[in-house]
Each structure stands twice: as C-alpha cells, then as structure tokens.
C-alpha cells in the first residue's frame, strides 16, 4: 500500500483511540477540576467498565447488540456506584487533602484491581461488537485520475460507531456543563467551593456526584473499546497514563483543553503506533508532556495559578 492510504488507515485507528481517550480523560479532568483530586484509580474505573461489559454481554447473551446496549447502561452505573462509595468512605474522610487523596486513590487502584483479579480472573476476554461490517475505503489515484479501492484500506462500521458515539457523548457532556443546573453547580464548585456553599450548594454531595460521573465516563469509554481490545484486569494502566498526559497538556481542569489534547495525543498515538511502535508513541507523548511542563506548565488551555 502507498503512503497516502496507509496514513489514512493509521489516522482512522488514531481517531478511534482519540475518541475513547477524550471520554476517559474528560472524566479525569472533571474530577481534578472540581475536586482538586488527582485520581490515580481512574484507569481502574475504565477497567471496571470493560469487565462489567463482559459480564453483562455474557449474561444477556441473546444478541450481541442487546448485551452491548445493556452494558452501555449497566457498566457506567456500576463504576459510578463504586466511585461514590470510594468518595464517601475514603476521600471525604481525608478531607479531600490533595496529597492524601493521591495515596488514597493508589490504594483504591489496588483494591479494585485485585478484586477484579479474584472475581474475573487473569484472562483477557473478548466482547462481541453489536455489528462489525467491513467498509472498504476509496483512494484517489492522481496519476490515473480516478478513485480506486486499495487492498487493505478499510475500517469497520463498529470503529466509525465508536467515533460517532464518543462525539455525541462529548457534546452531551458539554451541554450538561454549560446548559443545565447540574453543570452550573459543578462549575460553581470548581471556581470557588467556599462561595458555592455560601449559596446553598452542598459541596460534599457535588464531589460525590463528580467522582461518580468521572468514573462513569471512563467506564463508558471502556464499554465502547472492549469489543476492539478485550477486557483484562490490568487494562487500566495505559488509559490512565494517556489520560494524565492529555490532562497535563490540555491544562489541568480544562475540559476544552482536554478534548483538544486527547485528539492530538490519540491521533499521534495511533499514527506512530501503525508506522513505528506503540512504545515510541508513548515515549513521544511523554516527551511532549515534559516540554509542556517546562515551557507552559499550566497546559495549552489552562490558566496560570494566581
């Protein structure tokens, strides 16, 4: 295959990764933005989403689409409930102290991971996609002046579905934050939790909601990706690393920056992985983070601390 079609193929793979990464990282960014909590366990909520999706798909079992739709509802709910319980039982008790919550979420990470190992096992298990038609993509041959279908240039309907659903969910998230009372409450808490309380906003309940919502977003991302990647109890590491990279580059707490950075990192990760190796993609992403921390510590869209 020529370079052009190959690049298109790599870009499509990158777009799928970017879509899922954007959902995962927005959850992490929301939690940090509102609660000032660096949630090291975020990747485990992603893993919970994938594992629950496997359980639901296996239990429902009649048709892959039915199991998938059920997983889209159940997995985020389960992740949110576990996250809210973690918030009430652990984070609230350490008064959301920034340093203590890092240690606490590391503990939550190990508890969830080992619970998954005991309950789900060490195997990687596939979840059948609800549909998966092969779509051949055309390419324009400039020399011959005509469109043709290069061998191997194609994607699947499910991958395009993942991109579309992620875009819809992100638009929905944006609408929630900017157009609803719940979003207004979350933004007020993010900007000044002290004054939010002075206007009747129950900040500790907002924190629980936000922590649960962030986990639900990660779980949703995992449900979308699990028909492509398989569910495994250690699968939370990579999305956690990439989400931190994205959130730092985008600007801590900036949702807009997170989405832009997710597209940049997700696309470059996909393209470099196809042309070179996934390891090189991670090395380059980490180097970009280092450069951002040196030259623009507040991130691309973050604001400087006063």
């Amino acid at each position: 295959m020529d370079f052009g079609p190959y690049l298109l193929l790599a870009s499509l793979e990158g777009a799928v990764g970017a879509a899922v990464l954007a959902l995962t990282a927005v959850g992490l960014s929301l939690v940090f933005g509102v609660m000032r909590v660096v949630n090291v366990a975020h990747g485990e909520f992603y893993m919970i989403g994938a594992v629950v999706a496997w359980f639901v798909a296996t239990t429902v079992g009649t048709h892959p689409a039915l199991g998938f739709v059920a997983a889209l509802i159940v997995a985020p709910l389960v992740a949110a409930i576990i996250a809210i319980a973690a918030d009430r039982l652990v984070l609230k008790r350490v008064n959301y102290d920034p340093e203590a919550t890092i240690v606490a979420t590391i503990g939550i990470l190990y508890i969830i991971q080992q619970a998954a190992l005991m309950g789900y096992g060490p195997e990687a298990r596939p979840v059948e996609p609800p549909f998966n038609h092969r779509i051949a993509l055309p390419w324009y041959d400039f020399a011959a002046g005509e469109w043709f279908y290069p061998w191997g240039l194609g994607t699947t309907s499910y991958k395009l579905f993942v991109i579309a659903v992620a875009i819809v969910l992100l638009l929905g998230f944006w609408a929630l934050m900017t157009r609803t009372k719940v979003g207004l409450v979350m933004r007020a808490t993010q900007l000044d939790w002290d004054m939010a309380q002075a206007f009747g906003i129950p900040v500790d309940r907002v924190y629980a909601l936000v922590f649960g919502f962030g986990a639900a977003l990660a779980a949703l991302a995992a449900v979308l990706i699990v028909p492509i990647q398989q569910a495994h109890y250690l699968m939370g590491g990579d999305p956690l690393l990439l989400s931190f990279i994205v959130v730092i580059i985008g600007g801590l707490g900036s949702v807009r920056g997170t989405v832009v950075a997710a597209i940049l990192i997700g696309m470059s990760d996909g393209i470099i992985s196809v042309f070179f190796t996934p390891t090189l993609a991670k090395i380059i992403a980490t180097m970009v983070v280092a450069l951002v921390l040196v030259f623009r510590p507040q991130g691309l869209f973050g604001t400087k601390a006063a």
């Binding site: 009372k181 207004l184 933004r187 007020a188 900007l191 002290d194 004054m195 206007f199 009747g200 906003i201």
Partner: peptide, 22 residues
C-alpha cells in the same frame, strides 16, 4: 464577602442563577 468573590468565569445571568439556587 470581602472582595466580592464572584464566579468570575461565569456570566452575570449565571451568577444570579447561583443566587437563586435555593
């Protein structure tokens, strides 16, 4: 409060909406 402590990144309408929250 002293120094007003508005939600500065929000609009006037949103600040008033916060006041009406209860």
């Amino acid at each position: 409060p002293q120094g007003r402590r508005l939600f500065t990144e929000m609009t006037v309408a949103e600040n008033i909406e916060i006041g009406l929250m209860t």
